[in-house]
Design a protein around this nucleic acid. Structure first.
Length: 156
DNA sequence: GCCAACGTTGGC
DNA sequence: GCCAACGTTGGC
């Protein structure tokens, strides 16, 4: 049984178009333990991921990716030049793990945060709850399907 | 750029 | 183990 997730990214840093170009990318830079645990323990190869653009115009879900392979150490934690460098993390005991994500689909339009909030089917979606700042959150199949329907619908 | 709502850190 | 200070996220 495949799982479903939502991963946030700032499109100025890495957008759905970048993922489309790269085809596969390591989802690096996650530095929150709960989000890490979702990637390490929750995600399975083949799981579908809503790619969400934050700090953007507009904010919202821009497309879909797919989890590829097993969790592996995020290389940026060992890179002193990286903004994600974590000097406390040891190579034989890496603190931060990531997954590879493969491009699946770029929506014809971004499903905006406003639309997500207005959809009754998404009322309980974790990523939409007040105060939620997690960059990786679980999504139910019903929620995932509802977002896909919105993406294929005409706005308004 | 502002700021609310978080999570993390570190002194005690 | 508490909690204040600090840093970060992310909508606006």
């Amino acid at each position: 049984m495949a799982g479903f997730w939502l991963c946030k990214t700032e499109p100025d840093v890495y957008s759905i178009d970048d993922l489309k170009r790269d085809r596969v990318t390591g989802w690096e830079g996650v530095r929150n333990y709960q989000a890490r645990n979702f990637m390490r323990d929750g995600m399975q190869p083949g799981d579908r991921v809503l790619v969400y653009h934050s700090n953007a115009e507009p904010t919202g879900v821009a497309g879909v990716a797919e989890v590829v392979g097993a969790a592996k150490p995020d290389p940026t934690q060992f890179d002193a030049k990286s903004e994600y460098h974590d000097p406390a993390s040891k190579r034989d005991e890496p603190r931060w793990l990531m997954r590879d994500l493969r491009f699946a689909e770029r929506f014809a339009r971004v499903v905006t945060l406003e639309e997500l909030r207005a959809a009754p089917a998404l009322r309980a979606m974790v990523a939409l709850q007040k105060g939620n700042r997690l960059s990786v959150t679980p999504v139910t199949k019903a929620e995932f399907d509802a977002v896909l329907r919105l993406a294929k619908s005409v706005p308004g």
